[in-house]
Amino acid sequence: MGTFSLSVMLVGAVITLAALATSHTFSVFFPGLLEGAWLTVQIAVCGSLLAVVMGTVSGLAKLYGPRPLRWLAVTYIEIFRGTSALVQLFWLFFALPLFGISLEPFTVAVLGLGLNVGAYGAEVVRGAVQSVSRSQWEATIALNMTRLQALRRIILPQAFIAMIPPWGNLFIELLKSTALVSLITLSDLAFKAQEMNQTTMRTIPIFTLVLLMYLVMSLCITIGMKRLEKTAAKGMPRGRSV
């Protein structure tokens, strides 16, 4: 779907949300949910940044790092990809203090989700770098570039374009996983919703608002990534790179 139709969808969702927020039935819940949504956004943004850093570093380390670094990257990727995000959060929140390291709930949320998604991101980075044709490497050798110059100037810029859509997927995954942080005492959007639902039993309005709020957030990610892809792929042919 093009950016235009997605934008129409986003505007539609925002208008619906605004209409509901001012309506009699829904308005009471709105401020509390908005507060939760703000925390969700903060965790999602910080977690995504961490995921990008971890994904890029460990993905490249797995491909090109010296052996010890490669093993370290593989260990990280397998542990965080192979175990549940919820268990990772619990481990960081409940088990780590027993070793004398107590972290703020917010830090645990960002760390847990960022590391988890970063492990998937590592495979995205690795796959995208490997998808750049061998002939591009050969051209850099013929121009006498070093491996590092080739990677930085030729391979990564092309791999970057291939990375954008799967990273968009991961960011949305991460956004949705933020609902888990309600289990480590954070008052995110999902937590606020449950709390209000338990006290008021107004299930339909509450969860309708929450649904729309998550939708608006994920549409923002999708549209942002589409635009980024368009800018990055300037001049590039559609589909496979040359």
Partner: peptide
Amino acid sequence: IGMVFQHFNLFPHM
């Protein structure tokens, strides 16, 4: 040494 390839191998992003 310089080389020209069968499939050009230009950098598509430049």
